[in-house]
Each structure stands twice: as C-alpha cells, then as structure tokens.
Design a protein around this nucleic acid. Structure first.
Lengths: 223, 223, 223, 223
DNA sequence: CATGAATGAGTGTTCATTCAT
DNA sequence: CATGAATGAACACTCATTCAT
C-alpha cells in the first residue's frame, strides 16, 4: 500500500486519483485514465494498490488528512467558540477554493457505501465530532454558551452546517442549489461568513426558556 | 413513459429502481438487477423507459414528488414558523423511517452529475428554496423573526440542517457519522426534534446586536 | 404461409415488409416495425409466417413475381431482339421508378445468403436465364444476331447489364456510383436507354472475325 | 487506428473481419465472432478500432486498396483498350479466385447503407469511373473506338460488367445465378474471358449508324 | 382469434485486472 | 522493475418470438 514510492510520486498519483474520483465518482473513474493523468502506467497503480477500492481508500485518506490538518489548525487555541468558528469557516472557504476536488471526493465517499470506506471516514469524522463536542462542553462550562443544549447534538448541527457549506462551494449539485438561494451573490464569501456566524451565535448563546415571546414563535408544543 | 402499466406495477418497478439506485448509485446499479428485483425482464424496463437515465429520472421524480407532498403538507397552514418547523422535522423523520431508499437515492443524485438529473433536482430544490425563503420573510414582516438576517441565507441554513437530518437517518455513511455524535441515542427521534428546534429557535429569533456578551463569544472581529 | 388472409391484407403485409427490408436489410428490419407499418400486430405476422426468414422469403417471392410479370410482358412477342430489349429497358426503368423498394429488396437478397433465399431466387433467375438464352439462340438461328458467340454467356452479360441498371436507379450505393459517371444527367432515362441499346446492338450483331482493325484495338493476344 | 500491431497481426485481424463481414454483412457479423476468428479477445479490436463501423471501414479500405492496386496495374501501359481490358479481366478473375471474401465484403457494402461506408466506397468507385472514362475518351481520340457513344455511359456499362463478373465468382447468390447460365462450364475462366472480350470489342468499336440491317434488329423506334 | 406485453438471448462496448516483455 | 497490450466479465440496450388475455 504505497511502499517504495518517492513522496512526490505518491502525491502525484493520489492527486490524480482524487481529481478523477471527484469528477466521476468511484464507478465512473477509470484506472487507466488515472494512470494517464499521473503520467504512469496502470501496472504501477496495481503494484502499490491492491485494487480500485483500495486506491480509492488511499486517495480518501490522503485527502481527509489534509482537510483535518486545516481544521485542527483553525480550531486550535484558546479563543472563544465563535471566534474559532469564524476561523474554521474561513479556512474551509479557502480550502474549498484551493482544493475543490478534495471536497468533491469527500462527498463522493458519502455516496460510495462499502464498509472499508465508511470505516476510514469514521476515523476522520470521529476527530471532528470529539473536537466540536469538546468545544461546546467547554464553552458551557465557562458560561459562554447556553446550558440548555445537548452538546453532542449541537456539535452535530454545527458540523452539518460546515459540511454543507463546503459541498455548496465545490459539488456541482450543491453549487446549483446554493444559486437557487443566493443567485448572483453566491460568490460573496464574506457575506456567507457573516450570516452563518450570526446564525450560529444566536443558536449557541441564547437560552430559550427565558424568552417570553416563545409562544408566538413556537406556537406551543404540538400534542 | 409508463403507459399501460397498472399503478401497482409502476410502483413496483420504480420502487425496485429506487432501491437499486439508492444502494449503488446511477452508474453502479445494473438494469438487469433492477428488473430482477422487480420480478420482471429487462425488456419491460426498456418498453416503458427510454434508457437508464430516463428511468433514473422517473425514479427520482416519483420519489421527490412524494417527499414534496409530505413537506408541503407539513409546511402548510397559518401556524408560527417554528411550529411548522416542528411539523416538518417530524414529517421528515417519519418519511425517512418509512422510505429510507428514497432519501438515499436523492443523496446519490447529488453525487451523480449529469445535466438532466441536476436539472430535475433543481426543480425540486427550487420549491423548498422558495418555500423556506418566503416563510422567513413573512415571519420577519410579522415581527416574529429577527430582522437582522438575510432571509435567503437563513433559509439555506435551515434547508441544510433538514437535508443533513434526513441523510443522517438513511445513508450508511451519515448514519455512522451520527452515531459518532449520539452513540446509542441515535434513535431518539424526540430528542433530536427537541434539540434541533432549540437550535433553530434561537438562531431565528435572537438579534445579535443587543447581546452584550458578544465579545466573549465572538472574540471580536478577526484582523 | 399466408392462409386465411384477404388478398388485400396479404398485399399490405408484404408491401410493408418489402419496404422495411429494402430500407434496412434482413437483419436491420424489425418485425415490430413491419407490423406497425402494415397496421397489424406482430402476432398476426407470426400466425401466417413461420419466422422472420420465412417472411423475408415471402416478401421476395411477392416482389419477384411482379417483376417477372413485367419482364415477361416486355419480352413477349415476335419483334426483333433489340426491339424487345428496348421494351425491357423501358419497362424496367418504369418499374424501378414506381417500385424502387422491390428492386432494393431484390438487391438485399443477393447479400443475404441463406439456402432458402438463394433457392427461391434461383427459381426466378432461372426464368430470365432461359428467356434471354432462348432469345439469343433464336436470333442467331434467324440470322439477326452474330453466330460467333456463346448464347448463354451473352445472355448472362445482357442480364448483368439490366440488373445493374435497376440497382443503379434504386439502391443508394449504386445511385451514388451512377452519379460518379453521369453527374447531373443521372435522371435522363432516354439517354440511358439510347446508349445502352447502342452498346447492346453492336455487341450482339457485329462479328469480330471480319473486322480488319482488330489488332489496333485488341493488340493481339497477350502472351 | 492500428498502431502498435505488427503488420502480420493487423493483416490477421482485418482478414478475420473481412471474412465475417463478407459472410454476414455489417449488421450480421458479431465483433466477438470476429475476435474469435482472429484468435483474439474483443478488447483488442476496440483498442485499435473506435467501433464496429470504424473497423468495417478499415476492413474495406484494406480490401479495396488491394483491389485498386490490382486494377491499376492491369490497366496501366500504352496497350490498346481491349488489350488492357483483357488484362483487367484476367486480374480480376485471379483476384476473385484468391480473395473471394474481399469481393463478397465489397458486395455487402453495396447493401449496407451508412454514410461513412458509402463515402469511402465512392472514393474507390471514383477512381475506376475516372480511369475507365479516360480510357474510352482516349480511344475515341485515337480513332480506335467508335465516336457515337457517350464515353461516360459506356465506361459505366464496362464497369457494370466487371463488377458483376467478380460477384459472379464470389458471392453465393451470383454464383448460383451464373450456374444457371453456364452450368458445368462456370469454372471455365478462359471461355468467360474470351466471350466477354468479344462482347466488349463489338460494343466498343462498331458504330451503328452505318449498319444497314439495323431495322431488322432494332425493329424501328417504338411509338 | 387478435393483440401486444413480456421474455431473454444476443450485441456492441467498456474497463478492472493481469502478465509477457 | 515498469510497461501497456491483452483479457473477459459485465453492462446497456434491442428484437425475434411467445402466450396470456
């Protein structure tokens, strides 16, 4: 699984695979095409990777490791949650702009099925899940964040919004969908950042119990 | 496109297709396999559908029409936004429980590319985009919702959270991911509903300008 | 093989078949398409004809019988050979103009192979072979035609020229080929008739032995 | 289109194709069958030829190029027309005996339709059309040939007779037809050559205007 | 008896994978 | 060791033929 290659070659192969898989999906991408993109023969691919799925997995690992590094860096430090959230959003926007194929490939993974791929991705998702949950719990402990929330589910919602943000910048389908909401303004990254932060800040900081006009909005509990 | 079939047969064929496409995607699913699942021969499929893509489109339309009906019903009425949001969430949870393949297939679409499929889906997304945006604008006009938000982007966030909710109940990958956040509690639909509503209510109703401890949370603007 | 149909229906079916086979060949034509053209269901076709090849054969027989009748009429009578030749050429030109599909289908037969089809056609070719050979022998006996020829082979050449004439008016390939020779004048039927008759008359009437400048033309026997 | 194959392999593949197409036509021949005949897998065919039609075209080109070379050599030189005609007839007889499939395949082409194939063949037919027409015009200029003929149409008749000659030696249908005229003598190539030359010589050299017994033969103009 | 829906073998074509060079 | 030609199973799609209604 990748022995005996210079780091450069490995990089080139994986990058070619990521691009191909991102474009056409696991089924649609052809090994021969990937080899051509990487400037190699198919034989080499099969020397270092057991088969197509194994190679797909390796591309994913490569791609997600990079993404994880970006996230970890953005999330690091002692700054308050939303400050870090802002940094994360910005990082993701930048990353999505620079490496759309990585995001697209990640999205392909979610459609691929297959135990091995899922397992691999769980590794990665596990990191962010723990990271975000810890953030929130910590914020609650410090008193910065509302107490009346389940930190795990709010972390989940947070992650959901970030995933969709990335897909919306990179994947054809979601890009089209975003345009339905924003039209021309789709590319206004600053506005997106601002509004998403507004959304998150209120969601994370405002306890609902005290809010008096609740009934107006929620209309009471449904039976 | 589907003449001469009893509604039952049509249903059966489409359901078989939806299941296959949900599992393996547009490329991965084999027409012969779909025919076998439906208890038919390939010839029949090609009698009623021009080709694989046309059939895929028909499966999608079938699936999305049903989903749309569910949404429209849940969203209808004069009740306040979050009341309707609660109904939508519940409907989607029920729908996802009853027809997981439909959701999975929809998710496959987002990965598939292909002009026709995307076009069709935009139709559908367009409906919800308009629906949600109108909701919010209306709520703002009534004074129920915060004024300092872009209704289009907030509608987008809202839709994002709902899409991810469905995927998280139906798609293998997202199910595994949800488990990372919730563990055993993954199946507690009521809890999910409650927390999501909390998240949404605050996000939608609380204006940020007045909130004094903003800096604590946002940490000021980043340089 | 054709029982229980009114003559009209039979005619209609065969005509539809002839058109289809003429257009697309034995393999290319689809039974369902033929049924549709004839305004019938496939079931009927298979009630009266064993299978596709049997039906093809019946179409052929139908087509060739008509052609034979035309030829026989044109060739009949006591007139001198070339007079009758002129009548044959005219008849064929008219027939080709009115029923191009029949000629085309006949041409398809020559490409089809298959014992049964060949056998059937031999029946028909046999008629013209005998007819033309007898013509010539008779002409020789009367002294109208040259004696230094093999009547069978000259009949063969005669038939060849007539077959190619028909194909050249009806079949796409041969039409294009004729245009290479004639260009715009392809449709000048009178000219074709005249020149072909000139060609035939000399070929059939002039004995070569007496011709003095033979060497100039033949250049002697090749070694 | 054929790179990286030894000339031998290329030859073998094309010969297999020619045989199959000759037997069953463009539609009837199966790529898998051709591959089997050539001792290869289907994949190879598709490595070197874009698709079936492209392969068919290549087989044709291969076949017709060879035929054209034979014709060109036979037609070359300063010898009088019928001398060259004799050489052409002999060459074609030899060629037909050695490569019957090539002739059969060519015949299949005339039945196939399809723009590309027709276009290619027109190229080839164009060569002979020009060649023969020039022959005749030249002969007329020299005074060897009759002046009262349209060189283009006479060239057309000449070509027709030669085409039918080849088909009559190679194609099942035409072989059977030839037998109807010649019986046992079908294989007597020398006789065929002699008689065909007699036929041609008279047709090409004898002007009809001067011939006094014209009316006896032509019977006057038909009303 | 007619219909035309259903069957399923067969076709062109692609592509993961192997292996001789 | 690298190459990329060769393999052949798999797939989308068609159509002769059958048979339930």
């Amino acid at each position: 699984m990748g022995r005996k290659l210079t780091e450069d070659q490995r990089e080139q192969i994986l990058e070619a695979g990521i691009e191909a898989f991102a474009e056409k999906g696991l089924h649609g991408a052809a090994m021969a095409d990937i080899a051509r993109r990487a400037g190699l023969s198919v034989g080499v691919l099969y020397k270092y990777y057991e088969n197509k799925e194994d190679f797909f997995r390796s591309c994913l690992r490569h791609s997600l490791t990079a993404l994880e590094a970006v996230l970890a860096e953005a999330a690091a430090g002692e700054a308050p949650l939303l400050h870090r959230a802002r940094r994360i959003i910005r990082s993701l926007q930048t990353y999505a702009g620079d490496h759309p194929s990585h995001i697209r490939m990640y999205h392909q993974l979610t459609a691929a099925g297959g135990d091995a791929a899922r397992q691999l991705a769980e590794e990665i998702e596990g990191v962010t899940a723990r990271l975000y949950t810890a953030f929130i719990a910590e914020g609650q402990a410090r008193g910065d964040l509302r107490r009346d929330m389940d930190p795990r589910l709010f972390a989940f919602f947070f992650d959901n919004l970030l995933m969709m943000l990335q897909f919306s910048y990179c994947c054809d389908y979601y890009r089209a969908r975003l345009a339905l909401y924003c039209g021309e303004d789709r590319e206004d990254l600053g506005r997106m950042e601002e509004e998403l932060l507004k959304f998150l800040e209120s969601a994370f900081t405002t306890e609902q119990a005290q809010i008096p006009h609740r009934n107006l909005v929620l209309g009471g509990t449904t039976p």
